[in-house]
Each structure stands twice: as C-alpha cells, then as structure tokens.
Write a protein that binds this DNA or RNA. Structure first.
Lengths: 135, 135
DNA sequence: CTTGACCCTATAGCCGCTATAGACAGCACG
DNA sequence: CGTGCTGTCTATAGCGGCTATAGGGTCAAG
C-alpha cells in the first residue's frame, strides 16, 4: 500500500462512518468505485476522503442522499449558478422548520395527555387512554 | 351485506386511512382478521372501526406501531396498572422533545449557512458550499 | 504457522407504508 | 344478457438509509 492511500476502515475512522455504509454509498453511486489493491481491497486517496467528509457533513445537516447527489454534482461545475445550491438549502431548511412545527404541536398534545395521569390507577380508569381514544 | 357492516373502503373513508394500509395492519397483526362476505370481501363491525380509529389517533400522535400494539393490549386489560400507559407516553414525549431539540440545532446551522449566499454568483465562489465543506 | 483484525461479496431485514399486476365481485345502464 | 365501472382480492416488489448475517479471503504480528 503506497503512501497516502487509505483502506476502507481508515476512511470509516476518519469520517465516523460505518464501513458498510461507505460500501453502500459506493453501490448507489454516491461515491466513485475506488481502485483495488493486489488483495482486492478498496484503496482510497485524499480526494475520496474529502468527498466522503462532504457527504457526512451533509448527512449531519439532514440532507437526503438525493440532495447530496445534486450538491456534489453542482460542486464539480464551477460555472453553474450558486443559486441552485441556495435553492436546495432553502428548501431543506423550510422542510426542517415545518417538521419542527409539527413536532411541537405533537409535543403539546402529548404533554396535555400525559398530564392527565393521576398515577396509581388501573387501565379501567386510565385517563391517558381516555384522552387518546377518539370519541 | 347486513345492517351496520362495513367494507374496507368504508373503514378507509371513516378513518382517512388507505385501504392498503388497513390490509397491512391486518397482516402484521395490529388489527384482527375480519369475517368475510360471500364474495370474500372483508366485513367489519363497529368495534373494528373503533380499534382502527384508536390506531390512527396513535399514529397521528407519532407512536410506533410497536407502541400501539402495547397500548392496544393494555387497553384490553382493565386490571393492568395505568402507569404502563403513562410510561409509554412519557418515553414517546421525551423522544419527540429530543428530536425537536436536534432539529432546532440543525435549523440554526442551516440558517447560518443559507445567510451566506450573496446571490447571483457561480459555484466557484459559492459561500454556501464553502460553509458546508469541512475544513 | 496460527491467530486475529481486517477486508470481500451477496443477501435479507428494519419501519411504515406505497405501488404494481392481474383477477374477481357487484351494481347500473342499455 | 352483455358491458362498463368501481371496488375488492392476493401476491410481490419497492422506497430511504442503512444494518445484520453468512461465508469466505488477506495480511501482518507473534
């Protein structure tokens, strides 16, 4: 193994990604197939590491793999308009904010329901089940 | 079809659940298999409707099908302690609140990133991609 | 020369549905 | 009676984003 080349486990450690996940990303074409060593091991270079780092960062930001695919493609074409990137980001942010609002409404309702528990009772007079049951 | 009996489509309309989903719930044992009509159509009674309504309500509250299974089982046993129900609800609420916190952190980061867009530029000087790319 | 850590492929499973295909039931209209 | 139409039936595969399992091969250290 030449200087600077990384095995899949090295890549996994560097990016805190599981080995199987890296292979999965390759299978779905999110990462290019790397060259293979004599023993048929995947052998990565620094660029591959950078690409995976970018993917991981995007995943941490909650982007879908499909979005990441687009972002990667955009990032390779210097001439494309930056507004495409902005659009993807803005749409994702909006989706996250919608999800937060939904979950907050949910949390309030659950709090309301949970607060009804008198404690120590049996199912027959459970006010939580009562609250859940549609009337 | 006797008075008061419902076909799967009726159940679907009443509960705003898709027909395929009802069949799916039956397959995984969340709903009991109903009797069949002469033409092999599923035939539901009012109790089945109530049960599905309960399931739907729980889904709307974000409970997993596994949780719903437990809640259904608990609700059938009058003697069981209500605290079991409270536990499931409280754990779910805690999970929802964790998720909200995670998403809020995410939203803040995305806002920070999106605000860097100067508009009108090209990928080569895209400050969003810059912000996403790990250094 | 064996042990153990790592790597390989291929396949199936997770959740909660959704989609597709191909066939049968039941009713209205001509 | 036939023809359409809508609704229902079964069975199977697919979605996203992994994760788990089985059954091997590779390689460096002791």
């Amino acid at each position: 193994m030449k200087h600077g080349e990384l095995k899949i486990g090295d890549l996994a450690r560097e990016t805190r990604t599981k080995v199987v996940t890296i292979r999965y990303y390759e299978k779905i074409g999110l990462l290019p197939s790397p060259v293979r060593s004599a023993g048929n091991y995947r052998s990565y270079d620094a660029e591959a590491l950078e690409r995976l780092r970018f993917v991981r960062r995007c995943r941490d930001l909650g982007f879908s793999l499909e979005n990441i695919r687009e972002l990667l493609e955009l990032s390779l074409d210097d001439e494309r308009a930056c507004s495409d990137v902005d659009e993807i980001t803005a749409a994702h942010l909006a989706a996250v904010e919608r999800k937060i609002a939904d979950l907050q409404a949910l949390a309030h309702e659950l709090q309301r329901i949970a607060s009804r528990c008198s404690g120590g009772g049996t199912i027959s007079n459970c006010r939580i089940l009562d609250a859940i049951t549609p009337h």
